[in-house]
Computed example of a mutant assay.
Amino acid sequence: MVLSPQDIHNKEFSSKLRGYNVDEVNDFLDQIIKDYQTVLQENKDLKSQLDENQDKLTYFNDLKDSLNQSIIVAQEAADKVKTNAKKESEIINREAQKQADDTVNEATDKANRILEEASKRAKKLAIETDDLKKDTRVFRQRLQVMLESQLEVIKSRDWDQLLDDSGSTTYEDIEKVVSELDSNSRKSVKSNPQQENSAELVEDSPATDDAGETVVIFPDGQTE
């Protein structure tokens, strides 16, 4: 059994001859009592702190276990979310890739159709342009032949004779000269080597109306 300060204080010693000095022993016991009380109080305080710390340790251990369990649950949830997110990401990527491929294929097909139509139009335009050039060359040749024949008629000396102011020219003489000029003009048109179609170019040659006047027939069918 552990002694208390009171036990030490109440301890009585028997006296003997030539024994210790009673006052010194009592003073020393008083000092021991004080120190012992201090030690006991410190021990009590330390025990109280120990109990308090033990309670805290128990609390923190329980908290640690709870946190560890929460961490495990959170980790499992995070792993599940990560797995689901990965699967969803793969699905989204596949759908996006498919949509991208479809868009590219559709755009490629549309571009090919546009290029094909443009190529057809270009070929058609080239053919039409070539045909237009040919028609233009033919028209130019016909117009050139017609103008040259008309110019030859205009340069003829018979016009000077016809328009002579001497007063000796009669109506019959004028009609005869005009007929000859018209005949020469037709021959000039028919004999031109640049003419591709003699039947068409004959229509371009000068003609005469009922009054005996020279009529110029242009390629579009108009007369002057």
Rank of each mutant, 00 (worst) to 15 (best):
S15R: 14
N112R: 13
D135E: 06
E203A: 12
K56I: 07
Q75M: 04
F60E: 07
D204C: 09
S119P: 00
Y171G: 00
A118T: 05
Q144I: 02
E148N: 10
L67A: 09
S66W: 08
K44C: 00
E95Q: 08
E12M: 08
L143S: 10
T169C: 03
E200H: 13
R18P: 01
L57Y: 15
G167M: 10
S89T: 02
L181N: 01
M1Q: 07
Q144N: 05
K11I: 05
A74W: 03
V138Q: 15
E203Q: 13
G221Y: 15
K187G: 03
R113P: 01
S70W: 12
V81A: 15
R157M: 05
K124V: 06
D164G: 01
D62G: 04
Q54H: 13
D35Y: 11
T38V: 09
P206S: 14
V178T: 05
E76F: 02
F139R: 12
D131C: 04
D131V: 06
R121G: 03
D27R: 15
R140K: 10
K120N: 07
R186A: 08
D65K: 15
T103K: 15
R157S: 06
E200Y: 15
L125E: 08
R140C: 01
D79Q: 13
A111N: 08
A199L: 07
D182R: 08
K82A: 09
N93G: 02
G167F: 13
Y20N: 04
A118W: 07
N197G: 02
Q97V: 00
D101G: 03
N43A: 11
R137Q: 07
D62M: 03
V104Q: 07
T136D: 00
L50P: 00
I71F: 15
E106V: 03
F60W: 14
S15W: 11
D204M: 12
L201A: 07
Q144V: 01
S119C: 03
R94K: 11
N21S: 12
K11M: 14
V81K: 13
E148D: 04
L115M: 10
R121Q: 05
K134T: 06
P219W: 13
Y20W: 10
E90V: 00
Q99E: 14
V39I: 11
V178F: 08
K47D: 08
V216C: 09
Q141E: 06
Q6H: 12
S119D: 07
K64V: 04
L50C: 05
V202R: 11
A107R: 14
D165E: 10
Q97F: 11
V145Q: 02
K98S: 06
K16G: 04
G167S: 10
Q75L: 05
K155D: 04
Y171R: 11
K64S: 12
L163C: 05
K124D: 07
L17T: 00
L125C: 00
R18C: 05
S198K: 14
K98L: 11
N53Y: 15
I71L: 14
I154R: 11
N184K: 13
D164M: 02
D173C: 01
R137C: 01
K47W: 07
E196I: 02
E90Y: 09
D204E: 07
E52S: 08
G167K: 08
V178N: 04
R142W: 12
L132F: 14
I92H: 15
D101H: 13
V178C: 11
Q222R: 15
K133V: 06
S156R: 06
Q195M: 09
E117Y: 12
A96L: 14
N197M: 04
S166Y: 03
N184E: 06
V145G: 06
N43E: 12
N197W: 12
Q97S: 10
